[in-house]
Nucleic acid binder design. Structure first.
Lengths: 222, 222
DNA sequence: GTTGCAACATACTCCGTAGTATGCGAATCC
DNA sequence: GGATTCGCATACTACGGAGTATGTTGCAAC
């Protein structure tokens, strides 16, 4: 029952400055490897030893920082969501019509997906795992929290969509919820097919994000 | 080394008539339960005993028809893809402009997703598992075969898209591959969020399929 | 310079689960 | 009507992998 609880603590603040540097670095390294493993082999398909091997370390190192495999997965998920939230939130902050804002948000979403493909693939997986009934109560709390964030994320888009309908930049006759789910689906699906081509420049990624976004906003009608 | 190979054989013909009825029925029952389990708990999260319990039977019944858990998963995947292919293929067969055809295909895709949500959720999962490196050579062949079908499926849309560009019903300036990936993503994502509301009529489902399709074709611009 | 703790590594335990070997009643064949 | 095969159930094995208990090393503080 040793209360060595550095375990969870750091995750909560997650941003309380440099935090002694080396410590954070070690944790981030674990998260990175875990994200890759989970992405390639799935949650259940990944063993802690797999992650450790990839780290060039052993289980000990991982269990020193994370209570359980599920916790580790959640932390990767959380980090992925945080990056999405940050990018989209910033895009929403700048002004413009609803449609302009929505375009920027979607573009930011797509770009974040591409630049953090491992983390975001885990996020997608986590959403899919949503109805994974059999977990400990403690873990279910974490999962519910993540789903709550997810919901807030979707709400950002819904709000902007409605704002666009109000200012006339977005068509009135659309089912908002369905439209947003469709748009987000198109971008989220990138987690499945997108893999960075070697030597792909940020500018190329940005261009691709713009193109996929533009199609979602403007449709394909000729 | 008993060569009791009813195992795989039936799957290959898969369509050689009623096939003595009761046999097929038993297999289909297994596939249905497996689809539900895989959907709810994921591939690795589902044990053969889980599927058996849901069947009100034991492992024996399952291993009598399927060589391994992976085989069972693939068979569910295959069936899901078959249903998609059938629906979309039929939609493509009827004439019209490229855009009209593409609209019908996408609608059929969406509707099939809704009406076979368990199977199609497994399909989505299977696509995600694509790069599951560590399988037996035999299973990798199955997986590659499924990915090939998947690719052909996407090709159906790409062809129609190009046809639409040729006949002027679809804008010329779009990146075809990216556009199709986006559209399919929007619909595939339904596997994540869509669950049939109790008492939902086929007509309501059809309406939803139409709406989400129309948004993908026409965009949201006001 | 020794006490203490952080940051791991090593060496286990223990249980769930895939796969197998075998049993067994009922239908089918000859 | 005996033999054989089908369609499962039962009983077992074997192993991988999550989690734990316990070292071990280095740095920091005093």
């Amino acid at each position: 029952m040793a209360k060595n609880d550095m375990h969870r603590e750091w995750a909560l603040k997650t941003r309380g400055q440099e935090e002694s540097g080396a410590l954070v670095e070690s944790v981030v390294e674990i998260l990175d490897c875990a994200a890759l493993c989970f992405t390639e082999m799935g949650f259940q398909g990944t063993s802690i030893d797999d992650v450790a091997r990839r780290l060039g370390a052993t289980k000990g190192r991982i269990y020193h920082y994370f209570r359980s495999k599920t916790d580790l997965f959640f932390e990767v998920h959380r980090e992925g969501m945080r990056r999405l939230m940050d990018a989209v939130g910033e895009a929403k902050a700048a002004g413009g019509t609803g449609r302009e804002t929505l375009t920027r948000m979607l573009e930011a979403h797509a770009l974040t997906m591409m630049q953090n493909i491992a983390y975001e693939a885990v996020v997608v997986q986590g959403v899919h795992m949503h109805r994974l009934g059999a977990t400990t109560p403690e873990q279910r709390i974490s999962l519910d929290e993540l789903m709550d964030i997810r919901h807030k994320f979707e709400l950002l888009f819904v709000e902007t969509f409605r704002q666009g309908q109000a200012d006339g930049s977005i068509r009135q006759d659309a089912d908002v919820s369905l439209a947003v789910k469709g748009m987000l689906g198109a971008v989220n699906w990138m987690a499945i097919w997108y893999r960075p081509r070697s030597g792909e420049s940020p500018e190329q990624q940005r261009a691709m994000a713009r193109r996929i976004t533009e199609l979602q906003i403007g449709g394909i009608a000729g």
